[in-house]
């Protein structure tokens, strides 16, 4: 047997290698990337005009420049956070290829998360920067006034990606029980569109409805939280609270995804693939 060295730093290197592989894997699909970029930009213009018409000079705590920035940043975040991206887990469960994942000495959640963060890294370079650049050329965006907002936004976007990963992992892991994740995927598609602040900022909703969404669901933390951080809708302290909230949700979603994976594995190993 190989002389395997152990310990946390090595584990960290495994994670980085998987992240880097995720980055390279997604960078090979150039035409899909360009098509997605085009769609994000097109919808960016539509959302901008609709929301400008709704907001006027100011509404729900956003002024016109903030709302335009909100639109273009959130357009860029769609692919980066991976709102509609698939992890491939459901298909691997359906075809039985998931057995190969179980035969590796790394937990599947760890490996899939690393790959998804790599994917997000590539998406950030093209699918985030692209729409924001177009938005900046076509409109007068509001750039952050506080320098600390920039690093805080990066942390917020990474945490949003982790929360989104957790949600998608759960959706796809449903295939362990249902054999097909199409049903849960439809529910996820609906929630990720309507409840994340993508169609409009959730502050447009009645206070109680928004409060329920923020406290009881992970959805606003996926898109609205990082967008609010970057448009500086809240004070510096408020932005920190938002990011801390995201960290909490990220931890919770990873724990739930890990638990679902353990249950799914148990089901698979007890009842057969």
């Amino acid at each position: 047997m190989a002389n395997h060295s152990a310990g946390a730093p090595v584990r960290y290197r495994t994670f980085i290698a998987l992240v880097s592989a995720g980055f390279r894997r997604y960078s090979t699909y150039r035409q899909a990337t360009l098509a997605g970029l085009f769609t994000n930009v097109l919808f960016g213009f539509m959302r901008t005009y609709v929301l400008l018409a709704v907001v006027g000079r100011q509404a729900a705590g956003y002024d016109a420049r903030q709302i335009v920035t909100y639109v273009w940043v959130s357009q860029g975040l769609i692919a980066t956070v991976g709102l509609w991206g698939e992890l491939g887990l459901a298909d691997r469960i359906r075809t039985g290829d998931v057995v190969a994942d179980l035969l590796r000495p790394v937990p599947p959640v760890f490996a899939y998360l690393a790959a998804d963060l790599g994917r997000a890294g590539f998406a950030a370079l093209v699918r985030f920067v692209g729409p924001v650049l177009v938005g900046a050329l076509a409109f007068d965006l509001r750039w952050p006034q506080r320098p600390a907002t920039y690093p805080l936004f990066v942390v917020s976007a990474v945490l949003a990606t982790v929360i989104s990963f957790g949600c998608r992992y759960l959706t796809e892991a449903a295939a362990y029980w249902l054999l097909d994740a199409r049903g849960p995927r439809i529910v996820w598609a609906l929630c990720s569109n309507a409840l994340t602040g993508l169609v409009f900022p959730l502050s447009f909703l009645p206070g109680r409805v928004a409060a329920v969404l923020w406290t009881a669901t992970p959805f606003p933390w996926l898109l609205q939280a990082p967008a609010d951080v970057v448009v500086e809708r809240h004070s510096a302290g408020g932005a920190l609270v938002l990011v801390a909230g995201q960290a909490g949700w990220a931890g919770l979603m990873l724990a739930v995804a890990g638990y679902a994976q353990r249950l799914g594995t148990r089901r698979l190993v007890v009842q057969g693939g």
């Binding site: 495994t14 592989a21 390279r24 699909y29 000495p105």
Partner: peptide, 25 residues
Amino acid sequence: QRSQLWWDLPLRDSFDLLRHIYRVP
């Protein structure tokens, strides 16, 4: 009838990833 290689990466990259996954020096 199954693959443990990464479909969209060059063969060499799959081998390199496995080195990290199995922590082989």
